[in-house]
Design a protein around this nucleic acid. Structure first.
Lengths: 193, 193
DNA sequence: CTACTGTTAGTACCTAGTCATAATGTGTAG
DNA sequence: CTACACATTATGACTAGGTACTAACAGTAG
């Protein structure tokens, strides 16, 4: 079945969003149209060429992602991040995170996820937690997936501290909440592309 | 000043490791050699071309796996304890506790020590942290020994919470201070973790 | 019939490489 | 000084995955 131009373009957009590593040739084959049509589509949709797409993915990872923290020093997996603005990480609660007796996640793991996310979101070479105020709102059990969302709420608070609020959820339910007052070495400008 | 082949290749390796987004042409200029030399160098060092390098970075980003740094079951070694009264634990700051870049202990390890001590001192089957208020007073460096002292200050506070104050020291110097509001199931049993 | 949209085709050009081969420099041993 | 090795540079032909542009054709709408 042949797709209309609109359908094809919508699918094209989604396809490249899911997997930016596809060439025009492969796309042409996939949609049973010529390469030129694919190129016109990309032009209309403002989608850059393969190499640019790959470069974007790479650079996103490289310069934007984690400056103050190598990636493997973050507890949990960072899935979204805009430096000095907000960040999201995921932590799956595994056996090593829980009390062996009742399978409830130990508090410091939730703290560690939130704290390291707060450190990571800071656009600075040196970022350290100065103080924090936290609440554990409900028990998190083995197997649950904790999604921590950090938001920078104040860039230049008392003593030049940056305030980061982290809220952690399991299935939309708030399980942890913390306010972190972060020390940083400089006060970098916010720049976003 | 001209570099020897070996020096150049070593520098080339480091340069591309730091920033894989450099073309052969820029490298040639940087090292004051021809593009061909750069290519011979890359060949010898088994460094792929620009596009492949970028692709690698991009793909690495794409398929990043969760690497949850396991924190040991018991954080610090308990050296003294009187249930529902006070407790002391020792934690030696090792390489796995610090930021690789500056050798400063990551906040969540100090928190973990204090938190688990607060849990341990509670004389109950189930003890969980409800909320806490903490301060990191000075940086703790690799190799330092942190002594955490927990004191139960209130046995039946608001909502039946037990309040535990933990102070951590390095050489008598206060480096961390936290007040933990602990949830407990009952008010007796001898059992803790 | 004409105008317009959507599609396909083809050409020239681009970047950042590849590979193979040849021609230079430069340094050291005999 | 010559000979040879090794390092370096040059040259030409080729590649993928494009951009930018021009031209042509088929089907539909007015």
């Amino acid at each position: 079945m042949k797709l209309s131009k609109k359908e094809r373009q919508q699918l094209l957009y989604q396809t490249l969003k899911d997997n930016p590593f596809i060439t025009d040739e492969e796309l042409a084959e996939k949609f049973s149209v010529s390469i030129q049509t694919i190129r016109l589509d990309r032009l209309e949709l403002n989608i850059p060429e393969l190499r640019e797409r790959i470069k974007n993915v790479a650079q996103h990872n490289y310069s934007e992602k984690v400056r103050s923290l190598p990636i493997d020093e973050v507890i949990g997996e960072i899935v979204d991040m805009e430096l000095d603005r907000h960040a999201i990480s995921i932590l799956d609660i595994k056996p090593e995170h829980v009390f062996s007796r009742n399978k409830i996640a130990r508090g410091h793991h939730l703290f560690a996820q939130a704290n390291s996310l707060a450190v990571a979101v800071i656009n600075d070479e040196l970022a350290l937690t100065a103080s924090s105020n936290i609440q554990f709102l409900r028990q998190v059990k083995l197997g649950e997936r904790v999604i921590a969302k950090a938001k920078v709420t104040e860039q230049n608070g008392p003593k030049g501290r940056t305030i980061v609020v982290v809220e952690s959820f399991v299935n939309q339910e708030l399980v942890f909440k913390g306010e972190f007052s972060m020390y940083r070495s400089k006060n970098e400008k916010v720049d976003k592309q």
